[in-house]
Design a protein around this nucleic acid. Sequence first.
DNA 1: TATATTTGACCACG
DNA 2: CGTGGTCAAATATA
Length: 270
Amino acid sequence: MGSDVSAWPLKLSGKKKRIIEELVQGQESANQLQILFHNSSQETGHLSSSKKEALIDKILRSLDQTLAVLSSVESAEVSQSQTASNQDSVDTRSKRPASKDKRGCYRRKRAAQAWTVASDTMEDGHAWRKYGQKGILNSKHPRSYYRCTRKYDEGSSLIVTSSECWETGTVDNGDSKILINHHHSQHLDPTPTTLAVKRETKEETSTTPSDVTDLDSIMWKDLMGDDEFEYCSEPAEMVSNTYPWCTEMSCRSFELDFGIKPLEFEFDEL
DNA sequence: TATATTTGACCACG
DNA sequence: CGTGGTCAAATATA
């Protein structure tokens, strides 16, 4: 019954995030304590142990509650500030991107991309900056384009396509698969640069994390229906297998492909 | 404030 | 003309 922290929105403000982390720790501790008590009370069968267990139960419940409240507050705040900034920008500079020559001039929507990168450094210490995302023609996965933050920009680049999946069933800390194919790795040294791990977490939209999680996986299943995907567990962790994709300074960009649906949730249209 | 991400527009290519 | 890749303004986060 612990709330799965890893499924939580990563975009909390630092303080709140810390609070939650602390609470979760307390929760886990209480959990363990409960288990311990449970075991020992089975052996000894004390009467007072039931009282203790009740107490632990209470602690656990209150921790749970607190966490739930905190998370819901957070999401409420998010949506509030969102609408606020929307209104704000309506006055000054909001314009429909109908006008020409105004690339990237748009009002930001909320959850077109419900995933955020938690770790942006690959194992080799390269930092990748996302510079674009596109949907692919026949599949639901958007494709993300990353570029190395380092400034040695020489022509070579490469593309990594990963596909991700979910499972309707249970969730353990996400494991998902990726297919990587580098696309134009022109002159790459065959320096076997290792394994790149990127971890992403889903950003929830409205309710408690667990609820959303369930809902989402259902919806995704719905949407992804008849492709050749299998559904794997929910949150994401993408692991690219060893690929000679990035040498000291040759490769500068890659591209990722997720098996996620382009969620188009909006709170209210405007 | 600086730095990173999001996302529609732009553009080259087939 | 559709598609994939990139740009860059708007936005988010540190």
